[in-house]
Amino acid sequence: MNIFRFAGDMTHLISIVVLLLKIYATKSCSGISLKTQELYVIVFLARYLDLFTDFISVYNTVMKLVFIGSSLAIVWCMRMHRAVKRTYDKELDTFRHYFLVLGSFVLALLLHEKFTFQEIFWAFSIYLEAVAILPQLVMLQRSGNVDNLTGQYVFFLGAYRAFYILNWIYRFFTEPHFSRWIACLSGLVQTAFYADFFYYYFISWKNNAKLQLPA
């Protein structure tokens, strides 16, 4: 494992910690898209089916369980916790995420490495992860004002994607048979979605001002 991959995993983990912190400390999930969070649950459950079939390392197994567990906990809080669910901005979270699930699944049936149950679900999870942030980004744009922790959450998620691209570049040049075009192309698309957000994030950081997205 190279340093970029590790940095990617850590920023991914930090983004989840930031989100859990926001929900637990403020007992509020305002500004957070439940639809994006539900998509992440589907992404992790579909991708980590290999928990039952392949063992790669203790690190991988633990991280997979943490991602599945934390995403389930977040959705549970937003749907079931009495105080938290009252703060959910349902009227701002109207993205029709079922289309993303359907589209990703159809794409996985067409584009995959092998036509097996596990490989189809793996490709599906990759495509779905690429678009899963969209409901959240649309919600941020609609609400305009982004609170600090929500901004940090999306920033760390974007950083995770950026580090994974550096990791692939590194692996491409250091490993003889590195080819995984499905993951790399989807990863590029996914990272591109964050470009706009990053632009405004850095402007607000430079001006030491609150993060605001144009309507």
Partner: peptide
Amino acid sequence: TEEEEKKDEL
């Protein structure tokens, strides 16, 4: 036969 590449990323 080529050994299958394990999906070692998260």
